[in-house]
Design a protein around this nucleic acid. Sequence first.
DNA 1: CGACTTTTTGAAACGAGTCAAGTGCAGTGG
DNA 2: CCACTGCACTTGACTCGTTTCAAAAAGTCG
Lengths: 231, 231
Amino acid sequence: MLSQSAATIETKALFAKAMCPPPADDQFATVMGLAGMVATSFRYQKDEEIFGEDEPAEYVYQVIHGAVRTYKLLSDGRRQIGSFHLAGDVFGLEYGTKHRATAEALCSTEVRLIQRRSLENVAKVDVQVSRILWNVTSGELRHAEDHMLLLGCKTAMERVAAFLLEMDRRLKASSMVALPMCRRDIGDYLGLTLETVSRALSQLHDQGVLDFSGARQIVIRNRQRLRDINE
Amino acid sequence: MLSQSAATIETKALFAKAMCPPPADDQFATVMGLAGMVATSFRYQKDEEIFGEDEPAEYVYQVIHGAVRTYKLLSDGRRQIGSFHLAGDVFGLEYGTKHRATAEALCSTEVRLIQRRSLENVAKVDVQVSRILWNVTSGELRHAEDHMLLLGCKTAMERVAAFLLEMDRRLKASSMVALPMCRRDIGDYLGLTLETVSRALSQLHDQGVLDFSGARQIVIRNRQRLRDINE
DNA sequence: CGACTTTTTGAAACGAGTCAAGTGCAGTGG
DNA sequence: CCACTGCACTTGACTCGTTTCAAAAAGTCG
């Protein structure tokens, strides 16, 4: 990764800044504003690795557009996707020196990135920045705790309902949920096989809870029913 | 909770300070040293609630002796224990204003506690304290991510092996692991039923991997075998 | 269109859950 | 000191939800 020339990266960074103003509540933007740090941007194609587990954590990332999965593997290939990161989300922030998961682009994805070192240096003297780092990690922990409850307790149908509600909340453009990930990714996120995910979605479709326009374009017809299933 | 008189609490705090000097790498002690904050201590009996989910997070806690479980519930009573907190562990630290889990004593337990507000006030001006809060939350996140891998991917036997190795690492006094929690707690931590936990332990016993002196006193005879099972 | 990947669907197998009974251990009181 | 009681734990038999394996259908892209 990061094999492009510095000039290319700089150019892309400028372009990105001009075209993609960050949202108002964007913590990363706050950090950069406070610190006067220079962020650059980078593009990854589908399934390209952004960083690997146990690699030195040199950068902190934010999704500009596209989507990212972060996961851990067992030695025999079983995979647990810990999170999906969508536009605006920060990922790859570590307190320690190494990444504790692998990150890959789900589709063509552009990320903003800043050096961990520069962020650290600012955080050493600026309490506000330091607090923001804590807040980012705290948000990840909240998600992880909710997800443990799902993985440890919920049935297949409850997991799929929870997933749909999460995606609906996080990427609702109009009434359509456009999933950037395949059934296998959903399965590895929910602790299920891709077949079980597919069967649950089919069942919800049969019950009229949702409609498909292609396998990844979903319209939720009965949000309350999903909430009920999810408990 | 916290229904004892202020005088009682103060007394107990002093006693605790005299009797229980914190370990050298104790982050909580570091915070208190830096901030000049007054900590007090409190005792809970077996199964007593320390704080409840969604309650205002007024205090941050540290186990002096004993053990604590923190968990989330579904509406029908299914329970996911997120962590066990043993002597020295900090728990109940929130970035937001509410506790996101319930905490209960596993056995007779003494905790040190300090006001969240006073910690916040110090963290607002002291970058070192702010960093420590981030580090504590980051440690919880690391554990949660490892646990998601367990809950999403591992077999019953692998989960139990992982649990034994975790407890061996965290509370090894000599060669004996003295579990403070019952089979149901272990099950709710590992996303299994208590019967499945019991069966896995019996199987490990039959294979000579471990010995019992009573159900909760376990001697690990073949640590490497457990590591192999855990992958 | 044709080749490929992704998704759906079916049937059979399996691991963990459920239900129920039996065992063991700690604490209590005769 | 020992039966009695109440839990915690173990074990067995059966059930069930999910996985596995396989094949067909749908969708994607050069």
